[in-house]
């Protein structure tokens, strides 16, 4: 059976073998229901067992398989080959991150930033909660729900030029997550987080390029979260400037 084919130009970097990355071409079947990740799996199984990349759920929720496909950060499990026919398709690791090997990026930096923004419910009395559940109306849930949908896929970091130029920047997903807890009516940790995020590496580094929200596969809108944070930060500052006697 003759089968249509498409070429993938895949970024290779093997630290024991080469100082600089190279591109390697592979020819894979072009099928209607195949995504870029399926093509990588085909390569791994049949063409070249040494290709390294991360993947798991193949249904867009585990966040493992983000890569640059023809220059755009995407989840490879949700990007059909057909879209790029007749090819070739260029597959690279997510931009702005150090590359461990091939398509695998180093993301410990993000994991540290995540912890820094205190993404857990903070209560002033240090008590865990009432006897039953906290009361939270559907409208209060809707206030933060969007920001809770982040799957930590790192596409936003790779789309963010600020993060590329200033790796110290806390970055879109972490700030959106801080905002997710700030806007949750069960949480009382806004001030603690504001202290952390109004520093140099926090919200004010963001120049509102807006690309993070464009590439987000879950419509989290981190750019929006950061701008809202800025509005809140500015309001706080004016309040304390105009009314220094009033405690925030």
């Amino acid at each position: 059976m003759s089968q249509e084919k498409i070429t993938l130009e895949v970024f290779r970097f093997r630290p024991e073998q080469e100082d600089n990355p190279v591109f390697q071409s592979y020819e894979v079947p072009l099928r209607k229901d195949w995504v870029v990740l399926d093509a990588l799996n085909y390569i791994k199984d049949y063409l070249d067992g040494t290709l390294s990349y991360r993947w798991s759920c193949r249904m867009g929720v585990c966040g493992s398989c983000g890569m640059m496909v023809n220059g755009t950060p995407v989840l490879t499990c949700a990007t059909f080959l057909q879209k790029f026919a007749p090819g070739p398709i260029r597959v690279e690791p997510l931009s702005n991150f150090p590359v461990v090997r091939d398509l695998v990026i180093e993301m410990t930096d993000f994991m540290e930033k995540l912890k820094k923004v205190k993404p857990w419910i903070i209560r002033k009395d240090n008590q865990e909660g009432p006897e039953g559940e906290f009361i939270q109306t559907p409208s209060q849930l809707a206030d933060y729900k969007q920001y809770s949908m982040c799957i930590n896929c790192m596409l936003c970091y790779s789309a963010c030029p600020v993060y590329g130029l200033e790796p110290g920047f806390t970055g879109p997903a972490a700030i959106a997550l801080a905002q997710r807890y700030n806007m949750d009516n069960r949480d009382e940790g806004q001030e603690q987080r504001m202290e952390l995020l109004s520093t140099d590496d926090g919200i004010w580094q963001c120049t509102f390029v807006g690309e993070c929200s464009e590439v987000c596969p879950k419509n989290v809108d981190p750019a929006g979260a950061i701008q809202r944070y800025k509005v809140a930060g500015a309001t706080d500052w004016w309040k304390s400037f105009l009314m220094p006697w009033a405690k925030p």
């Binding site: 865990e128 039953g132 009361i135």
Partner: peptide, 19 residues
Amino acid sequence: MLRLEHWGCPWSRQDNGTV
């Protein structure tokens, strides 16, 4: 399940705000 609610799990709610 209540502890998870206290830790911030966004459970879907009824209009009166209960789970």
